[in-house]
Design a binder for these strands. Structure first.
Length: 448
RNA sequence: GGCCCCAUCGUCUAGUGGACUAGGACGUCGGGCUUUCAUCCCGAAAAUCCUGGGUUCGAAUCCCAGUGGGGUCACCA
């Protein structure tokens, strides 16, 4: 009964549109706690006012909600400034930090900086930014629960990091330690890029006399061209991917499997499945490459799993109600197996809404005979419905000794302007008699 | 450059000293189904387990070095 509750947090900063790798961290942190019936905390790290983006906080909340991630507690660092200030001043008082009045270096210097010890560390100023007084000749280490390794550094290579900026806002190094402690976070899960600054945090924990939580560093998702995932190859922002027509379920499934794997190599996971089977030993140690083909495959899988009325709604919303719902509903069964992204709906089903130009070169040698025969047959059908359409047209093919494939291909092209389309007879039914005949006549007329 | 992490088919991975003639998935190629394209089904190719040394009766699995990839070195997170 004294077991400590697993509490994790997702701590993004509202500095731009959320990156897919960032979202992955949220999924992992969520599953880590929820698998144990623990708590998941959302903490906004808005301590850099200069970089903060308008609406950034709302976007983070919206995205988590879209993916079904709910948080048990919520914190905004800018509302907790006193906490950090007290902690920083305590460190100064105890001799583990000092005031610095140097001019701020607020951008990365050219080349590699090597000035690890700050010139103000022994000047005993009583105001200014507060920096950590890193000790000499100490070994600082921890066991990373993702890597499963003990990692250590000599304090000689740790720099006197700024803890509290002169604007009284904390830096990440201070805020992360103070908040994780204050909110009883048991497991810290974060990007690989934080590994090098972990010794700073470890020192702060020690000097503040806080218990160190479990800390784990996740892999980075890499760009197919090398380096960290970048925007060169299309969007990597979550909203961008959503706008490309990817389903949240597919994005979720794809991204959790980039950096984590189950023992049995299972592929399809809902959020609930993932929480159920989650096991931290499944974390990978090496960086995965963003594989769009695999994402596309997942998306196709989920489109097929979605029931027709739900898919109709999603397409309706995706196109911001540009197309009428009743028509989408009829078309959905025809395109469901044929699209990999919602955005494919346009290219595959566009002809239903807008007459497409017919390239005569696409038509076969006997298109004239084919289309005349089709026209004649279609004219006799009073009520356009699937079974009748199929029977009559097939009968026409037989009676005229046409080649079935060639006949339907010409009809297909005349109606849609394309060689790759949904099933043609079913499409004609949806299109209706009037429109169908009109299009066939038009092609016949323009090719004469 | 210093420091740190990592290394199994093109890609994501299973594998935790003997069951590995290294398994699965995506992609690719071939076939089936079929009035197109897809879906679906079947099959194939694809991995010197990065290299070199050890340890061991035995190594993809443990150790060391090299090489390669990644990260990081701000009053940004």
């Amino acid at each position: 009964m004294t077991e400590k509750k697993v509490r994790t947090r997702f701590a993004p900063s509202p500095t731009g549109s959320m990156h897919i790798g960032n979202l992955r961290t949220a999924f992992y942190a969520y599953a880590l706690s929820k698998h144990e019936g623990g708590d998941f905390i959302l903490r906004i790290e808005d301590t850099d006012k200069k970089r903060e983006v308008e609406g950034g906080v709302q976007e983070i909340k919206n995205i988590l909600t879209i993916f079904g991630i709910n948080w048990d507690e919520y914190y905004l660092q800018s509302e907790r400034l006193d906490l950090y200030k007290v902690a920083a001043e305590k460190l100064v008082k105890d001799g583990h930090a000092f005031y610095c009045q140097c001019e701020a270096k607020n951008a990365k210097q050219e080349g590699f900086s090597s000035q690890l010890r700050d010139s103000c560390r022994d000047k005993n100023f009583t105001s200014g930014a507060i920096k950590l007084k890193v000790p000499e000749n100490e070994i600082i280490k921890f066991r990373d629960f993702v890597l499963g390794e003990e990692i250590e550094w000599k304090t000689e290579i740790v720099f006197d990091a700024t803890l509290l900026k002169s604007d009284k806002f904390p830096t990440y190094h201070l805020a992360v330690v103070v908040d994780d402690h204050a909110t009883s976070v048991s497991h810290v899960l974060r990007g690989h890029d934080w590994l090098p600054s972990t010794p700073i945090h470890l020192l702060v924990y020690k000097y503040l006399d806080f218990k160190i939580p479990q800390i784990g560093h996740l892999t980075d998702i890499l760009d197919p061209d090398g380096g960290k995932l970048s925007k060169r190859k299309g969007s990597t922002s979550v909203t961008g991917l959503l706008e490309e027509g990817y389903l949240p379920e597919a994005l979720f499934n794809f991204v959790i499997l980039a950096g984590w794997a189950p023992k049995d190599n299972r592929e399809l996971f809902s959020l609930e499945d993932f929480v159920n089977v989650f096991d931290a030993s499944g974390f990978q140690k090496s960086n995965p490459i963003f594989n769009r083909d695999k994402l596309d495959w997942f998306n196709g899988q989920y489109i097929r799993k979605t029931n027709d009325s739900e898919l109709t709604t999603r397409i309706l919303k995706f196109y911001k109600e540009k197309y009428p719902e009743d028509l989408i509903e009829k078309i959905v069964p025809l395109i469901k197996d044929r699209i990999t992204r919602l955005s494919d709906f346009d290219t595959l089903a566009g002809f239903f809404f807008k007459e497409s130009e017919v390239d005569k070169n696409l038509l076969g040698d006997n298109f004239d005979k084919h289309l005349h025969a089709a026209l004649e047959t279609l004219l006799t059908i009073k009520d356009f419905n699937n079974s009748q359409m199929n029977d009559k047209l097939l009968e026409t093919v037989k009676n005229n000794n046409f080649k079935t494939g060639d006949f339907f291909m010409d009809l297909r092209i005349a109606i849609t302007g394309k060689k790759m389309t949904p099933p043609i007879n079913e499409s004609l039914v949806i299109l209706g008699k009037e429109e169908t005949l009109k299009r066939i006549k038009q092609v016949l007329k323009s090719t004469n």
